[in-house]
Design a protein around this nucleic acid. Structure first.
Length: 481
RNA sequence: GGUCUUAUCGUCUAGCGGCUAGGACGUUGCCCUCUCACGGCAAAAACACGGGUUCGAUUCCCGUUGAGACCA
């Protein structure tokens, strides 16, 4: 018995540059990436830009940039920022592969597995309506199926509009989906599908088959919305005598109403999440857990850990609602783990001593990087506040003023260099405890923050420094007169 | 409308014939505490329905219903 040859794992994502990188495409990319990494395989990026009307260069750039931002680097495909490719099956852009498609289409035409169809739009529409009216599934009649070479030539000569149809055989097509098991379709219901408008203008289902074969793709891991395309692609593969890859169809990412995620409810492109202050590692972690679950109850994973634990068989079958609240929580967890230096780097702020101190005191309170500004504004500009805010619930105005004056006195005797929480804990805290922590610390904290909610007073004082601290306390004292 | 897919707390999910149905987010309460966060503890919260198979079904099979996707 001959041992079955094991093909190397080669997976791909094939986005159309008709929009920014969608979160669903990003997750598909992630799963492909993880599967490749785990099996020592290759992850390929192919740009499916045959839809000239809707494809735009800026979208392609966004897709490339967003994938890189997420850390999903591809082994083969376009090189970012350049017009070149890496990988031995270049080019990886469909508009540059027209010669290849033409070759395969001609083969199908020669084999009489495909044919020119000259039916007009009106004709087809009428048939469709008639079928619908009779309660039948609309399906192409097959009218042009057996046109002679002569008839084709005549139609061409009078410039009759045409498409190329694939002769869909009347068989049952079934395949084993790695996630869902056996799926079968009755191909007699499909009808002859259009695979190209012309030998050099292929349509989606045809170009995919050719490219996946030419690029020796071993596993097609894609969204559930492609399940119905699979039998068509398999039939084309068979007609062309090509190998059939393994298939795995991922559940969809859903909006709260359980329909396919769209702009109606939430941001759908990766770049929007980047702008909103989400960390790429948080996005990856979160996306991995949408529709997949490891063994055990762990919730946070690096991309390396994911690659190690990933398992196609543990992918969910049903769609998953995108839960922004959980994403925020995951993001907050990652921000908390950041050192102040790393936080400044992510924020794009200089690593000055002041920034680092500010970063340290608000780090645990951030859900997204965007929260930083709102949470630290008060340090740079004292907000307006009412004198009454200074007085602790059990205290009086007079006593509050006394306490603030006491704090001011102690603080004015401390060297600038000793303006740190550790030192203040030693010298100021004993007084605060003696006077009553609420009575003493509350007004001090309000004086330096101008807010009813903020980090602790000593932390703020440390971030503020001596001069600003004394200034703010004086303002508070003046308010109490 | 046709085809295909799918069904455990509000949400993401664990479970793969016998469990007080577990975890996480969110929610609520308590603790910590000068406030707000963080953190800790606790609580409420789910097997869509109906038939089988079986000593026993959340789990296997068949329907129903719901949901979604695709085609047009």
């Amino acid at each position: 018995m001959v041992a079955k040859k094991i093909k190397p794992v080669r997976v791909r994502i094939a986005p159309s540059p008709t929009g920014y990188l969608h979160i669903g495409t990003a997750r598909t990319a992630l799963f492909n990436y993880l599967f490749a990494k785990q099996n020592n395989g290759s992850f390929i990026l192919r740009i499916e830009d045959t839809d000239l009307e809707r494809s735009e260069k800026r979208f392609e750039e966004d897709i490339i940039n967003s994938l890189q931002w997420l850390g999903l680097d591809w082994d083969e495909g376009p090189v970012a920022g350049k017009k070149t490719y890496k990988g031995k099956f270049k080019p990886y852009r469909q508009t540059e592969r027209l010669d290849t498609y033409e070759k395969y289409i001609n083969k199908l035409l020669e084999d009489h597995a495909a044919y020119y169809c000259f039916c007009t739009k009106e004709e087809l529409e009428n048939q469709r309506q008639a079928a619908l009216a009779e309660g039948r599934a609309p399906k192409y009649s097959g009218k042009c199926r057996s046109l002679s070479a002569e008839e084709v030539k005549q139609n061409m000569a009078i410039n009759q509009g045409h498409v190329i149809r694939f002769k869909v055989p009347e068989v049952t097509v079934s395949f084993k989906d790695l996630i869902r098991g056996e799926i079968s379709f009755d191909a007699t219901l499909i009808g002859d599908i259009v695979i190209a408008k012309d030998p050099r203008v292929p349509l989606y289902n045809f170009a995919v088959v050719v490219d996946d074969s030419e690029m020796e793709i071993s596993h097609v891991i894609r969204g559930e919305d492609h399940i119905a395309n699979t039998p068509k692609q398999i039939l084309i593969q068979r007609a062309l005598g090509l190998d059939q890859p393994e298939y795995a169809h991922l559940p969809l990412i859903l909006d709260p109403d359980r329909s396919k995620m769209s702009k109606r409810y939430s941001a759908t492109s990766i770049n929007e999440y980047k702008e909103q202050g989400f960390l790429p590692e948080a996005m990856v972690n979160f996306m991995a857990l949408l529709g997949w679950h490891p063994q055990g109850d762990k919730e946070t994973f690096t991309i390396e850990e994911l690659a190690k634990e990933f398992d196609l068989t543990r992918i969910q079958k049903a769609g998953a609602v995108f839960n922004i609240a959980k994403l925020k929580w995951v993001n907050g967890q990652y921000i908390k783990k950041l050192q102040p230096e790393q936080l400044m780097l992510r924020l794009g702020l200089p690593e000055t001593k002041e920034n680092l101190r500010v970063g340290a005191i608000v780090k645990d309170r951030l859900e997204t990087l965007q929260d930083f500004a709102a949470l630290t504004d008060f340090l740079f500009k004292l907000p307006e506040y009412e004198a009454g805010l200074l007085v602790w619930q059990t205290n009086t105005k007079e006593k509050t003023k006394e306490n603030l004056e006491s704090a001011r006195k102690i603080l004015s005797n401390i060297e600038e260099a000793d303006y740190n929480k550790k030192y203040l804990d030693e010298v100021l805290m004993p007084t605060a405890i003696a006077q009553g922590k609420g009575d003493y610390l509350w007004p001090l904290r309000v004086a330096v923050s101008g807010q009813k909610a903020s980090p602790g007073p000593f932390e703020i004082i440390e971030a503020l420094g001596k001069e600003k601290t004394l200034e703010r306390i004086q303002i508070a004292i003046d308010k109490l007169i």
